[in-house]
Every structure is written in structure tokens, then in C-alpha cells.
């Protein structure tokens, strides 16, 4: 049984159209489902939605040291290339784990770099003996507690939770 090539083409074009149409319909359903979920989330949890929109990453320091730093200096500090504040006291840097959403935002929004660049720089310092790594804490609560209790320390938070 042999089919002409044009016949084959028409038959398959029809199949392709069918697949395209049905997948389009599927995506439309998905999209409306997503809208419904988002809407209900917004209605049910207005406070949380507001927080997600307004939260801003900012530096958190144990003293006035962390205020009025230039972006370059902040970057040097978090890349662990500066060991002391201008007054000679040691800097102690706290960070969240590499895959923590706040760490990712801090790296991108405040430092203008990607988390993998920070990790790579810290590994190089540690394993060549030319520097130390920052202290990793597991949560934002731990970050705030450690910074409060450690003189000369610096870390980050997002504005709303930081104001509690």
C-alpha cells in the first residue's frame, strides 16, 4: 500500500493542527486555573501578598558601620576581601545558604552578582589560604540573632521582617 507524498502531508498536517488546538485549550485551562489560585491567595492572604510586593533587601549590621557604605565596599566585604572596618575592628560576615531566596536576591539586587560567583570566590579564598569564608546561618531569625550578639557583624534582611 503506497500513499502519495501530498496525501501523507495533508493527513499529518491535520494531526498537527489537532495537537496544537488541543494543547492550546489545555494551556488556557491551566492559565485560568492559575488565575483562580492567585486570586484566591490574594483574597485569603492579603497581608502576605503585600509583603511579597513591598519587601526590599537591605543590609543589617550590628553597629552604625553598615550604614553609608558604597556598593563597592559592600561588595568587597561580602566577597570577604576586607577584614576590618575603618576604625580597625574586625568585620564578621553572615550569609544564608546559597539557595536561600533572600540570599539570591541579596546577591543580585544589592551586590549585583550571582550566588555562584560568591561561592566560587569564597572557595578559592579558603582553599588557597588567602582568606576565610563568611559564617552561614540557616534562617533569617538566626541571622538577626547572631548579628545582634556579634560586634562588628554584617548581614542582610528584608525590610518588613527586619522591622519586627
Amino acid at each position: 500500500m503506497q500513499r502519495s507524498s501530498s496525501g501523507w502531508f495533508i493527513e499529518n498536517a491535520a494531526k498537527v493542527r489537532l495537537i496544537a488546538e488541543s494543547s492550546q485549550a489545555f494551556f488556557l485551562v491551566l492559565l485560568s486555573l492559575r488565575r483562580a489560585v492567585v486570586l484566591s491567595a490574594v483574597m485569603l492572604l492579603p497581608a502576605m501578598a503585600l509583603q511579597a510586593d513591598d519587601s526590599k533587601v537591605r543590609l543589617l549590621g550590628s553597629s552604625n558601620n553598615a550604614k553609608q557604605l558604597t556598593t563597592e565596599t559592600i561588595r568587597e566585604i561580602f566577597f570577604m576581601r576586607l577584614s576590618t572596618w575603618p576604625d580597625g575592628t574586625p568585620i564578621h560576615v553572615f550569609v544564608l545558604p546559597d539557595n536561600h531566596p533572600l540570599h539570591i536576591r541579596f546577591a543580585k539586587e544589592i551586590l549585583g552578582v550571582y550566588p555562584f560567583q560568591l561561592r566560587s570566590a569564597w572557595d578559592r579564598l579558603v582553599f588557597s589560604g588567602t582568606g576565610v569564608s563568611p559564617t552561614t546561618v540557616e534562617s533569617e531569625e538566626e541571622m538577626r540573632a547572631r548579628i545582634e550578639s556579634t560586634p562588628g557583624s554584617i548581614g542582610y534582611t528584608d525590610t518588613i521582617s527586619g522591622d519586627h
Binding site: E72, T73, E76, R81, L82, P86, S120, D123, R124, F127, S128, G129, T130
Partner: peptide, 28 residues
């Protein structure tokens, strides 16, 4: 803090290229 000057001594890693300083560590 824009300029840092330092000195290092002892048995030191040889700073060469992008990878030499820490090439025994798979992570780097």
C-alpha cells in the same frame, strides 16, 4: 577601603591563571 595592600609568606600557593591556586579541590 578602596585600596588593599598585603604581604604573604611561607609555603604559598602559586598564583597562576584562573585555576592553579585551588586546583586540588573539585569544587573549584
Amino acid at each position: 577601603s578602596a585600596l588593599v595592600i598585603g604581604v604573604r609568606g611561607g609555603r604559598v600557593k602559586l598564583p597562576f591563571g584562573l585555576y592553579n591556586d585551588t586546583r586540588d579541590v573539585l569544587w573549584t
